[in-house]
């Protein structure tokens, strides 16, 4: 006991003082109280109470205070109603005088002699005294391995497997479709070439103009023009390089 003591056990053992039972009070208390007052000296001042007396003809008769029993009834078994009628006795007359000539004894004998003997139930004996038990349910005779579809995957399983596979495929297809719809568009090789050629053409046009510029750039508009052209060509060069560098291009939507 002491070895298992723990201070945490004191927590659960919160002190509980059961409330005291109510003080005992006799159930006859009111009766006693009433009787002691009511039966005491009831005729003290006014004489005994005037009550109607009984008729002298209705005197107390012998055994009149004994309990009244119900009248006696015959004994009956509980299944008396459901029982079959008794076998007729020798003295009983047949109903409506009908009589049978059938010899029950010989017919019974003949029937039994002629009948094919019943096959004994397949049993096995497990003790030397010959205690028998039914063979069928014992498991001693091979039963299930002789079934036609023994060792094969049952039909319903293959069916179910196929169903699952089909559902999976449908689902995959649906998902692929869904992705495809949301995916980015790929630029085809043709389109790419087209854009590339266009860009190069633009570059050549600007380059041609650029070559035709005057050698001296002495005024501000000239300088601005030259610079603008240079910037445009640079931008085009950069775009061309980008398109040439990457073979596959996706367009974001």
């Amino acid at each position: 006991m002491q070895a298992n003591e723990s201070i945490y056990n004191l927590i659960s053992r919160e002190e509980y003082r059961p409330p005291k039972d109510a003080r005992y009070k006799s159930q006859f208390r009111s009766t006693v109280k009433m009787e002691t007052t009511s039966n005491k000296a009831s005729h003290k001042t006014m004489g005994p109470a005037k009550v109607k007396t009984d008729d002298p003809r209705e005197f107390l008769k012998k055994r009149s205070k004994e309990p009244q029993h119900p009248p006696k009834s015959d004994f009956k078994y509980p299944d008396d109603d459901t029982r079959r009628p008794p076998v007729p006795t020798q003295e009983d007359k047949p109903l409506m005088g009908i009589k049978s000539t059938k010899n029950f004894i010989t017919t019974n004998a003949v029937e039994n002699i002629m009948s094919v003997p019943k096959k004994p139930a397949p049993n096995f004996a497990d003790t030397k005294k010959g205690d028998t038990h039914p063979l069928d349910i014992s498991g001693l005779v091979p039963k299930y391995i002789k079934k036609k579809d023994f060792g094969e995957v049952p039909d319903y399983l293959t069916r179910r497997k196929q169903e699952v596979m089909r559902a999976q495929e449908e689902y995959d297809a649906y998902v692929a479709e869904h992705y495809k719809r949301g995916a980015m568009q790929k630029l085809t090789e043709q389109e790419r070439q087209l854009i590339l050629n266009g860009l190069k053409k633009n570059w050549e046009a600007i380059h041609h103009q650029y070559q035709g510029l005057s050698v001296v750039t002495d005024t501000a508009p000239k300088k601005a023009r030259k610079e603008r052209m240079e910037a445009e060509m640079k931008q085009l060069e950069r775009d061309i390089e980008l398109l040439e560098k990457h073979m596959t291009i996706y367009i974001g939507n």
């Binding site: 006991m1 002491q2 003591e5 723990s6 201070i7 945490y8 056990n9 004191l10």
Partner: peptide, 28 residues
């Protein structure tokens, strides 16, 4: 109090350390 609650350890002015069982209060 020991962390597992198994004993109350106390320091006394007579130079002794006393440990007690926490439920019965007996000397351990």
């Amino acid at each position: 109090i020991m962390e597992n609650g198994s004993s109350i350890v106390s320091a006394w002015d007579d130079g002794k350390i006393r440990a007690f069982y926490p439920e019965s209060g007996k000397l351990m």
